Amino acid sequence: MTATRVIEPATEPVSQAEMKAHLRLTGTAEDELVGQLIAAARAQVEQETRRALISQGWRLYLDQWPAGRVVQLPVAPVQGISQILVFDEDGVPNALAETDWRLDKSTSPARVRVKPGAGLPSSAVMAIEIDFTAGYGASPSDVPETLRQSIRLLAAHWFEHREAGTELAMASVPHGLDRLLAASRVRLL
Rank of each mutant, 00 (worst) to 15 (best):
Q83Y: 06
P93M: 09
S82E: 13
R69S: 04
T99C: 00
S106F: 05
L60S: 00
L96N: 00
N94E: 13
F87I: 04
V78E: 04
F87P: 05
L103P: 01
K105I: 08
Q72T: 12
A97T: 11
L73I: 03
D63E: 10
D100Y: 08
G68N: 02
L85D: 14
Q79N: 02
W101F: 15
D104T: 03
A95L: 09
Q83N: 10
A97D: 15
S108P: 00
S108D: 14
W65I: 03
D88I: 00
G91R: 06
Q79G: 14
L85H: 01
G68Q: 06
V86T: 08
A95C: 12
Y61N: 05
W65P: 05
Q72V: 02
V71C: 07
A76C: 08
Q72S: 15
I84F: 01
L103G: 07
R102W: 01
R69I: 11
L85M: 05
Y61S: 14
R102A: 15
L73R: 05
A95S: 11
V86N: 09
T99I: 13
D90K: 14
D90L: 15
V92R: 13
E98W: 06
G91C: 07
L85T: 03
G68S: 00
F87H: 06
S82I: 10
Q83E: 13
S108T: 15
L85P: 06
K105F: 01
D100R: 00
Q83T: 09
L85A: 05
E89F: 06
I81K: 00
R102N: 13
R69Q: 07
N94D: 13
D63Y: 01
R102D: 11
D100P: 04
V71A: 04
R102I: 02
T99H: 07
D90E: 14
E89Q: 12
K105D: 05
S106T: 15
P77C: 10
L73S: 09
R69T: 00
V71D: 05
Y61R: 14
T107E: 03
W65N: 04
W65S: 03
W101T: 02
V71F: 12
P77F: 04
D90R: 14
P77R: 08
V75A: 00
G68I: 00
P77L: 11
E98K: 05
T107H: 00
L60A: 14
W65L: 13
D100N: 11
L103A: 03
Q64R: 15
G80M: 02
A76S: 15
V78P: 12
D104I: 13
G91A: 08
V70L: 13
T99N: 04
I81W: 04
S82P: 01
A67H: 09
P93V: 04
K105V: 12
E98P: 12
L96V: 05
L60V: 08
V78T: 14
P77T: 13
S108L: 12
T107A: 07
L73T: 04
A76P: 06
I81P: 05
G68W: 05
Q64E: 15
V75Y: 03
V75R: 11
I81E: 04
L96A: 02
V86I: 11
G80L: 09
S106C: 10
L73H: 02
E89G: 08
S108E: 15
V92K: 11
L73C: 11
L62M: 10
Q64H: 09
V75E: 03
P93A: 08
V70D: 10
V70W: 08
A97F: 00
A67Y: 07
